[in-house]
Computed example of a mutant assay.
Amino acid sequence: MCYILLDTDSGISVASSSPPWLLAHLGPVLAVAAGFAHTCAVRADGQLVCFGRSEYNQCDVPASLGPVLAVAVGEHHTCALRTDGQLVCFGRNGFNQCDVPASLGPVLAVAAGFAHTCAVRTDGQLVCFGDNFTCNQCDVPASLGPVLAVADGYFHTCAVRTDGQLVCFGNNACNQCDTPASLGPVLAVAAGDHHTCAVQTDGQLVCFGDNDYNQCDVPADLGPVLAVATGRAHTCAVRADGQLVCFGRSECNQCDVPADLGPVMAVAAGYAHTCAGRADGQLVCFGNNEWNQCDCT
């Protein structure tokens, strides 16, 4: 299990022997995203901070970026939504997943998959770009209409329409795009490598797709949830009381929620690590730390 303490002033990470090692020097965070082996957090002042594996410069935040509202992290790329609504992406660009269309305009939300990126424009139109050769995960259905939210999996995309209907497209080898007929309207969606989870309007969590590691087996006693995040093969949900619950593959302890974590407001799930934004704004990460994506030793 790993927690992180990041000194953003010196650029030096510091480990502590007394968990939890909170991100005391990072300061309160508003949002967090986790990828294959890197993590990005939006500080309260809007500054984006990224750490972990950066062989494609996916952690090299552009000096000219300015304050941001949201961040999405793919396998090896990062996309940030600036306060003016402009989308900026950096990192691996082998499939043009960082080439933001010049005509995109301001956006409200962004998601990043293995090598594709999707953005929700201010008019609700969904635009996707990047790898589309594998499974057509960038082929937005013509009949989709305006959407409120989007999530990108490894090779699939899911969007929540303004009427709450969930629509998924792309790779469906594990039925991760087969939205259950009984699902009903949803408020939020998360897409893992080969599974999808949606929060219904009543707060109930529904997951479908690959379940080899029980990542779709929602605990019977979970109750209503406020947020959900999906990694390669694990799922984490924030309950209505703020408690974080994770289930699925946990070979790196990415599902072992610290007993003293306390209530959280946000969660992100990477390939094999998990990061939670506590109610006090502090960030705690645990799981695989091979590339310092949890920034502990």
Rank of each mutant, 00 (worst) to 15 (best):
M1L: 12
Y3S: 12
G11I: 02
I12S: 12
A15E: 04
S16E: 12
S16T: 07
S18Q: 14
H25Q: 11
G27C: 04
P28C: 02
V29R: 06
L30C: 01
A33R: 10
A34N: 08
G35R: 04
T39F: 06
D45K: 09
C50K: 06
Y56D: 13
Q58L: 01
P62V: 02
A63N: 10
V71Q: 07
G74F: 13
A80T: 04
G85L: 09
F90V: 00
N93D: 13
Q97P: 02
L108E: 10
T117L: 00
V120I: 15
V120H: 09
V120Y: 09
D123Q: 07
L126G: 02
F129T: 02
F133S: 08
C138H: 05
P141F: 13
A142W: 08
S143I: 00
G145F: 11
P146I: 06
V147L: 09
A149T: 05
V150G: 05
V150M: 02
T157R: 06
V160R: 13
V160F: 11
R161I: 00
G164L: 04
N171K: 13
N171F: 14
N172S: 15
C174W: 15
Q176E: 15
L183Q: 11
G184A: 06
P185T: 04
V186W: 15
L187Y: 07
A188L: 11
A188V: 01
A190L: 08
D193N: 15
H195D: 05
T196W: 13
V199L: 15
Q200A: 14
T201Q: 12
D202V: 05
Q204D: 09
L205M: 07
N211D: 15
D217T: 09
L222I: 03
V225D: 05
V225G: 02
G231L: 03
R232P: 00
H234R: 04
R239A: 11
A259C: 10
D260E: 11
P263F: 13
V264M: 12
V267L: 10
G270F: 13
G270H: 12
Y271R: 15
A272N: 08
A272L: 08
T274F: 10
D280M: 02
G281Q: 05
W291L: 11
W291S: 15
Q293H: 06
C294H: 10
